[in-house]
Computed example of a mutant assay.
Amino acid sequence: MPVGSQIPIAEGLFTWPASDPALIGAQCRNCEAVAFPSRETCPRCGAISMHRNELPREGNLWTWTSQGFRPKEPFCGDLLGTGAQPWFVGLVELGGRIRIESILHNVAEQELAIGMPLKLTVIPFRTSDSGDTVITFAFEPAPHITTSDSTEAAHV
């Protein structure tokens, strides 16, 4: 792999390389539960009948919180820079079937609203010792998507 490539933070977490990445989840053939990240056994019924599937790339903000300080070790990302500005983490509901914890990217606190439409993106997380950009997934505002009216949630 040439130096300066983009590499995923973990294999099998999202499709990469891809022009339109998707999170890789799994769905139980027995009870239809959806899991992320992908796994072999069902978190609901315990069956060993999970099959890999790509999760929806768009969803809605179910809840969120802010953090104004760098995470404690073993966090090794550069994505926050050196400033102490708040950054946001949210639960994003995808297709009414699963909620994914994610960094919220390209959004200001005053823009965050329960139910707001979000879309999947990838962002730089850190630079590896070999000079590669390690990327991770995040969600950012998607104003063209219609919000769902399915959730009752709150800012925590």
Rank of each mutant, 00 (worst) to 15 (best):
V156P: 15
D20C: 04
I114H: 00
G12F: 03
Q27V: 13
A33F: 00
G83L: 09
V107S: 04
L112P: 05
P37E: 11
P21S: 08
L55K: 07
A113C: 11
P37D: 08
I98W: 06
H105T: 11
T146F: 10
H144L: 10
R57S: 09
G46R: 03
P56N: 10
E32S: 12
L120V: 12
V134P: 12
F69D: 09
G95K: 07
I135F: 15
S19H: 11
G68N: 11
E152S: 15
G96S: 07
V3I: 15
D132P: 11
G131T: 04
P21D: 05
F137T: 04
F125G: 02
L120W: 03
C42S: 05
G59I: 07
I145M: 11
P37S: 12
G25Y: 01
E93F: 04
Q6Y: 06
R99F: 03
T146G: 15
P141I: 00
L61H: 00
A35N: 08
P74C: 01
D78T: 03
M1R: 06
P71H: 04
T136R: 12
T82Y: 08
S49V: 05
I123S: 07
V107P: 00
G115A: 01
P141C: 02
G59A: 09
W16G: 00
A35S: 15
L91S: 08
R70H: 12
A113N: 14
L94M: 06
T151P: 02
T151I: 11
T127G: 01
D149M: 14
Q27W: 07
A18T: 06
P17V: 03
W87F: 13
M116F: 01
A35D: 10
P74H: 03
F36C: 07
A113M: 10
S19M: 10
F125C: 05
E152V: 15
E58V: 15
G25S: 01
S5A: 10
F36E: 11
